[in-house]
């Protein structure tokens, strides 16, 4: 799916949680929201874009999410 759109949506989610005073919790909540609401192919395309093009355009909190929470966000392998 459109990488621009996925990155924009991810940053929007991060923007909400980044207002929380507990940064660790904010990173966790951002990842949790992505995990609970993004269909696997959205997460797959998101990570594929990052792998192919780098993390340009990601906000700080999303960079932390990608760095520390990627394993739990990875979608199941397609059979």
């Amino acid at each position: 799916m459109s990488a621009d759109k996925l990155i924009k949506m991810a940053n929007q989610i991060g923007m909400f949680f980044s207002a929380m005073p507990d940064r660790e919790q904010a990173v966790k909540d951002t990842a949790g929201h992505l995990r609970r609401s993004w269909e696997p192919r959205m997460r797959r395309d998101f990570f594929k874009y990052i792998d192919d093009h780098g993390t340009n355009g990601l906000s700080d909190i999303l960079l932390e999410v990608v760095k520390t929470k990627r394993a739990e966000l990875e979608p199941p392998k397609v059979a």
Partner: peptide, 15 residues
């Protein structure tokens, strides 16, 4: 796993 929302369905259709 969660499924696609309406706008996600449209994006996936075009993709």
């Amino acid at each position: 796993e969660p499924g696609l929302r309406i706008p996600n369905m449209f994006d996936a259709a075009i993709e």
